[in-house]
Design a protein around this nucleic acid. Structure first.
Lengths: 343, 343
DNA sequence: GGACTTTATGTAAACCTTTACATACGGCAT
DNA sequence: ATGCCGTATGTAAAGGTTTACATAAAGTCC
């Protein structure tokens, strides 16, 4: 049936010889409709190829079937796989996924709020660890929201992600098991809870091994490749060198490896390095990076499921779902070099 | 003004002491409204914080301000940067971006067509080189559409992407300039025009250099890492070896490098390798990959601009916009090894 | 058989816009 | 003064749903 205009509920009603109300009920609350009638309606729907007009429905209901996903940067290597999980789950429940990216610009963040005023979107997934609405964050009326990947720092918003603290613990435990005792931590000073927690895992691991914290080998960066490289330079200007670098994320770890490589060191012979996230590049760099895997697709799926639940019964549900981080052993870690042990 | 329900056009009309028609006109066709009236309306809009309800507008107009972007796989390393360009351009024109991924499943592709029946989306961006609607592709009434990254094989749809043929030509010319004469081409047998054109660039380059085509060193794969590795194995079982591998894309090139590495060869000393696309990994693999850069953000931007143009005046505009591919010289290419030249 | 409940369906309003058409008014040419 | 035109605004319909309320039919109970 390729008529020029799509069939409406009225066309279906006419063919099924019922009222439009009955058609609507047959679709959305079939139990309120007699079996025989439901059959007629379904046939008419098949004949006309009817699809309910989502615009009209949203207008009437005052709520849409779109979920807005906002990230600072769509190109983030962590983002796309999470998006896959989000989209799959959304679509399985009849929702569509809208995307936006703020580039850390509060003005752009605010523009996305308009989607909610006009009911273009029903819920919000935040990929960013902070509400992207600048100083209006406080006053803005937020739609039902769920944070992914990083806990949302300033919003009291439910969150789905990996257990950062446990992940970091696994990394530091690996290094300890290999015999390392002087393990540097290259962190991220931005106010992101995820990074704070990874640091906590590091501290806890050292503590459990009876190693006193040594702040001379704990540095703060900003999670970029460049900051990893910079951290190496800083460390070499101090009086104490570690035998291993535990990095807050893979980008930093890559930077550390670049920095060490530039100084002529071999990894893992001279220094061991671990990352966090298991970004797609981690397997390609040389040596391949031992890191903590984020179950990204699962995170996306669960976050969307949580949001849809929130939308349907409005109750706050759990505030945090932590998934298990897995250690991925590759080639950037070995036992500490003799040279350093002697000291 | 944080009333419980968002302001409607009627609220604005009441405060400005005009009719709702005038408010609508003041917003969309200000030249039809007296200056004094326009002023009153604008003040009332400011007071109420009115935003037009996109649902009602779309319903009335029979057309939405959403663009659907469909890719086989959102996780494709080429995809995210294109998406950035698409989204920026869309939002600059008041459009939102919906995304979907088909995983090469025609059924899933068809589901996305529903967005158009109900006017949830006004236009379509296809990241895939083929209409993802299976055998119903012929009968489906398509919305205004633009292909990106790969020409759409079966749809007669405008296309924005890189000049594949010229890009391939640049790669082969580099290899020729380095002194290579036996250059393998590892292609992609899937029916994608982009790959066909890259092959054409290869052929043309050899032809211009007066080198007769040698089909023994032209192989077909499927664009995956595995197919690159497989191609190496196939070649080593033949009687002729190339001195360089020109690959249809970076994934294939990475596979070739893995395959050559497994046989103990050094790149670029023993063999040179080139890719196509400049995916983010290309700089991290060892050695870093000499390849052809896709101007991804620009592709996205131009594609969206073309689609919006299509939507506004409906004329077919150009059918193809080809951007300039740039050669990115890294470390996977050098002059052919003595060993092979001697033969 | 009456009174009442349950079940199935229909009628019509509401959601918020945009815009064709109608109206009113002032200016201008005759 | 008359007729005409242009400009500014208002009225009301239409777009496709969902659902409260009304109605009608059928079933249940005494």
């Amino acid at each position: 049936m390729s008529n020029s205009t799509p069939a409406t509920i009225e066309d279906v009603a006419r063919i099924a010889e019922v009222s439009i109300a009955t058609v609507s009920r047959a679709i959305h609350t079939p139990e309120k409709v007699a079996n025989s009638t439901r059959l007629k309606v379904n046939q008419a729907i098949a004949v006309t190829g009817y699809t309910t007009n989502a615009m009209a429905r949203s207008l009437r209901l005052g709520r849409s079937n779109m979920i807005l996903v906002v990230a600072p940067d769509i190109g983030d290597p962590n983002f796309s796989n999470i998006l896959v999980g989000l989209e799959n789950e959304a679509r399985a429940h009849g929702y569509g996924v809208l995307i936006g990216h703020t580039q850390n610009d509060a003005q752009r963040g605010l523009e996305y709020l308009k989607f909610f005023n006009s009911n273009q979107a029903a819920g919000l997934i935040l990929f960013t660890g902070i509400l992207p609405f600048g100083h209006q964050t406080m006053t803005a009326r937020l739609p039902p929201s769920v944070g992914v990947f990083e806990p949302v720092f300033n919003g009291g918003i439910p969150y789905v992600g990996v257990d950062d603290s446990e992940g970091a613990r696994k990394a530091v435990d690996l290094l300890l098991a290999e015999g390392h005792r002087k393990i540097a931590f290259i962190g991220d000073s931005r106010t992101r809870l995820a990074y704070v927690r990874r640091r906590m895992g590091y501290d806890a691991g050292l503590d459990a091994a009876g190693i006193p914290p040594d702040l001379r080998i704990v540095l703060e960066g900003d999670g970029t490749i460049e900051s990893g490289r910079h951290a190496v330079e800083q460390l070499f200007m101090r009086d104490t060198l570690p035998t291993a670098f535990m990095c807050v994320n893979d980008q930093t770890a890559i930077g550390v490896m670049v920095g060490l490589g530039a100084r002529g060191y071999d990894i893992p012979r001279d220094f061991s390095v671990t990352g966090f996230d298991d970004v797609p590049q981690a397997v390609f760099i040389s040596p391949s990076l031992t890191t903590i895997r984020q179950p990204r697709t699962a995170i996306g799926k669960q976050a969307m499921a949580l949001l849809l639940e929130l939308l349907s019964d409005g109750r706050p549900a759990e505030t945090e779902i932590l998934l298990r981080p897995d250690l991925v052993v590759r080639n950037s870690v070995s036992a500490p070099s003799r040279q350093w042990l002697k000291r």
